[in-house]
Simulated scan of single mutants.
Amino acid sequence: MEIVLVGRSNVGKSSIIRQLTGKKVVVGKRPGVTRRITRYQVGKMDIVDMPGFGFMSRVPRFLQEKIKTEIVRYLENNRKEIVLAMEVVDARSFSEIAERWQKRGQIPVDVEMFSFLNELNLSPIVVINKIDLIPNTYRDVVLDDICDKLGLPPPWRQWVDVLAPVSAKTGEGIPELKKIIKRRIHALGLGRYLGWLK
């Protein structure tokens, strides 16, 4: 049984895993630290940290494409083992990057991944990390915009089982994310695998 985390480089996937599990997870300050698929065993469950996709400075384009292909192939080949997928996005940069792609007439890679996870019937949780860097008065606007770009009609608060604003740095929102994970896993009748999630 696996929980898989995907997302762009440097959005904080490894830091989220550390917050959820308490395990020592290697995290980096620059994009592309996680270059290979990494597994962390927690009880009878595996947490799978996928390499970051998208732009990485000092990483050749062909390697960036290879990483993205590996992620897609892994998700397709291991679908039966995956009980939950989480796509981690950066609250500060998601909308700006998505708009840049849309202006070029392209589907943003984060949006494409969200659609792909849904096509696999993984009903992903979108973990919106670094929310501590968004002023409180502006958060609903940012979250509504992320919602809209993912094809989910705003306001974001109607998607509280899909969207989880958190800060891996401060721990803000992590208890709520854990509750979403527990609800999802219990709904699958797999509550016995959740002993690690305190």
Rank of each mutant, 00 (worst) to 15 (best):
P108V: 05
I146W: 10
G173E: 11
E112W: 15
N121E: 15
A91S: 12
S115V: 05
K44C: 03
V166K: 04
S14P: 07
G7H: 11
I125E: 09
L177K: 04
K198E: 14
E2S: 14
K178M: 05
E176V: 13
Q64M: 14
I174H: 03
I146A: 10
E76P: 02
V25R: 00
V111N: 07
K23C: 00
K169C: 02
F116W: 06
V48C: 06
K178T: 04
L75P: 03
K130M: 09
P51C: 09
V11D: 13
L190W: 00
P108L: 10
K66H: 08
I97E: 13
G195N: 11
V42R: 07
A168D: 04
V160D: 10
K182C: 01
V25I: 15
V142F: 07
R8Q: 12
V162N: 02
A164L: 05
V88K: 09
C147E: 07
A91C: 09
A91W: 06
G189T: 09
R139G: 08
V166L: 05
M50V: 08
K149S: 03
I47G: 00
I185S: 03
T38R: 06
N129M: 06
D140G: 04
W101H: 11
S9Y: 10
D148E: 11
V4E: 05
F114R: 10
G12I: 11
R39Q: 14
E81K: 15
G189R: 05
V83P: 00
G52E: 10
N78E: 13
G151P: 12
E87H: 10
G151V: 11
L190I: 01
M86W: 09
R157Q: 13
Q102M: 15
L5F: 14
G173Y: 05
K24S: 02
P60T: 14
A187Y: 12
E70A: 14
P51Q: 11
I134C: 06
S14E: 04
H186N: 15
I174M: 01
G191E: 11
I128L: 04
I185H: 04
Q158F: 10
M50C: 09
D145V: 00
G12N: 10
V88D: 05
Y74S: 03
I180R: 06
K149C: 08
P175M: 04
P135R: 09
Q64Y: 07
A98K: 05
L133A: 14
D148N: 06
A164R: 02
I174A: 03
D140N: 14
V4M: 12
K182W: 12
V142S: 02
K130A: 08
D144Q: 06
G173W: 05
V111M: 08
S123I: 03
A187D: 10
M56H: 10
L190G: 01
V142N: 01
V33N: 04
V88I: 12
K24Y: 00
R8Y: 13
V83A: 09
D90Q: 03
V33G: 00
K179F: 07
